[in-house]
Write a protein that binds this DNA or RNA. Structure first.
Lengths: 352, 352
DNA sequence: TCTGGCACTCGACCGAGTGGAGCGCTGACG
DNA sequence: CGTCAGCGCTCCACTCGGTCGAGTGCCAGA
């Protein structure tokens, strides 16, 4: 595949690029004559045919039947997005549409919903956002509530606005007043620190037990660790799945069913997104590259988003492989940046 | 429509029933010859033709084109389900499948998810469950947490297991200790009563202010009312939408898009379900009867479910108009009963 | 190495023809 | 008056053959 790229001379690359662009635009197999006319090169259709035959040998394009034009293979798309594509800057209206969608003082959940909606509306495909990891947001407050025999509700207030409930099942039973004192202790020690730091501190304290800690403190630390320990639930917000019904290259009902089912289950979507969280740029999956066969004719464009320089999540869109990458890529890119800054701006914009 | 029923003699009704059953089974327009053979009546095809012509005049059946068999109209389906249908008892396997799906000590949310999943899996259509109104579940505990300037988090524990958070925005600021005292006051007065009763009591106390209440108590009552006041959010749980992609009578992509969109928005689904909550039996909407035109070729079968004799919600399925009503209706019916008793059994099953 | 030309292939489209299912109507029968 | 057999007609679904056009592969010549 790497070799394929090296072996391609400038003319072949131009032709391949023109062919794919044309196919993306029209959805029709493109033949030698049209390609010769539209490529801008002054070569004859016959010459183009020879080049096309070479490209077909390399597995970059193929004919759906003997005498039709050529369409790109997944490998062709791969080469295209990796080294032939010139991304457009997102149009000003699009940037404005995206930017105006972000409400600076919405809750995180709302922000996620808005973002995936935005992505799906602007691209007319399905948008998805991986929830941010909360590693470096500040714990404002922690409280415990006794529900029943050994069952405790832990309430974490994060960033002064986000609230998380967790039900803990314990062997020992605590009275409400004990719980209150433990919460006071934890709040005094931990409030304002990031969840990440809180967890580290609790674990450290559990390790080197000091003499000046009484049993209650120990229990408090233990309880705090349990409450904070469970990382945020893995989840992903999806929107605009129905846009995918409009693409006739995805018209196979059975495939479509599997695709929508995947959106419901979310598990496989999560898997795909998690593969992208390492990269620091826009990433693209084409067709079956992700190893899922219901993914035929689909592509994913993702970008990680970060707060204060640390990647905390991924967002992206999923649509037909035959999509306008030059338009979609910058949209996903800029949305990721804007989401990152919307998340990052909040603490300063809403001090205490 | 009523007249149509009265005017139909036994033979015509048998023929209509056989025709609709046959069409539901095969999806093919059914002609006079086959109908004469399968109806069990000993009449000739010609006679059947005469009857069919009458039925067509009444608007109960129609031909898709000049010389094809007849298919039922929505009015025909209506008559069919109202007075011709003989529902089968649900098959034992189906009852068992449904019954075994209910985990007696799952949370309400889980129960709703399970139920809609169950409905969709057993019927192979889309299942939906309207969340139960909480009017008569017991409030176990109420707590307040100060989030910031005038912003308070109210935590309601219901039935000793369900937890609800509500953020209240107030004009006046309260300290955490004030909040604690108010919560104590409310808990002492209200714990164990039903949400409905709690609300009534709070409203009553607000009306006839008594002298022996100090300002704090008043504030507490006000706060409690705010916290309990907002009824549970309207919501509905949907599952198995993707099953609908399999029915070729729903193959129109644009219609399908609208249908799935409706499931996402949930608003219209809610509207339909709310129309059914009054009835105490299985209800059926056929085609456009609900007034929504994307609903063509779809039908809804719903049944309310009740706890302790009071209807608290509705569940149902949505699928193609051409569905096996005789199978679906008892399934929906029995599921509603089982869900009701699963919800009702919990308080006795989990005392305290 | 490029190019024009030629033969060939294949799908899309059209129109005619055919078979079959099904209807409406009519006239006869009990 | 209800029932029924039969006839003629309509319309759909399918097939078949022919044509057209787009596109390919290959070859010979510049």
């Amino acid at each position: 595949m790497e070799n394929a790229f090296i072996n391609l001379d400038a003319r072949a690359r131009t032709l391949l690029r023109t062919l794919i662009e044309s196919y993306i635009r029209d959805g029709q197999p493109v033949g030698s004559r049209t390609l010769a006319r539209t490529s801008g090169l002054s070569v004859s259709a016959a010459t183009v045919r020879n080049v096309m035959a070479d490209l077909e040998d390399m597995g970059l394009i193929h004919s759906p039947h003997t005498s039709a034009g050529r369409i790109p293979t997944p490998a062709g798309y791969r080469l295209f997005v990796d080294s032939l594509l010139e991304v457009r800057n997102p149009s000003p209206e699009e940037v404005r549409a995206i930017q105006s969608g972000f409400d600076p003082n919405a809750s995180t959940q709302d922000l996620m919903d808005t973002t995936s909606n935005l992505l799906s509306r602007v691209t007319r495909m399905a948008g998805m956002v991986r929830l941010p990891r909360h590693r470096n947001v500040a714990l404002s407050q922690i409280e415990f509530l006794r529900l029943g025999e050994g069952r405790i509700l832990a309430i974490l207030v994060i960033d002064g606005k986000e609230v998380q409930n967790r039900v803990l099942e314990l062997e020992r039973d605590f009275g409400q007043d004990e719980l209150q004192r433990m919460a006071n202790y934890l709040n005094a020690h931990l409030a304002g620190k990031s969840l990440h730091a809180v967890r580290a501190e609790l674990l450290r304290e559990m390790r080197d037990v000091r003499d000046d800690l009484d049993a209650m403190m120990l229990a408090a630390i233990d309880l705090g660790e349990k409450a904070v320990g469970d990382e945020d639930p893995d989840d992903v917000v999806v929107a605009g799945q129905t846009h995918l019904l409009g693409y006739e290259e995805l018209a196979d009902m059975e495939r479509l069913r599997q695709l929508l089912e995947a959106f419901n289950e979310k598990q496989e979507i999560l898997g795909i997104l998690d593969q992208c969280i390492r990269s620091d740029r826009v990433q693209i999956f084409i067709g079956r590259e992700s190893g899922l066969d219901w993914f035929e004719n689909c592509s994913v464009v993702t970008a990680p988003y970060s707060v204060d320089g640390e990647v905390v999540g991924v967002l992206g869109v999923i649509g037909p492989t035959r999509m306008s990458y030059d338009r979609v890529i910058p949209i996903v890119d800029v949305t990721a940046r804007l989401l990152g800054s919307a998340l990052g701006d909040q603490p300063p914009g809403d001090p205490k």
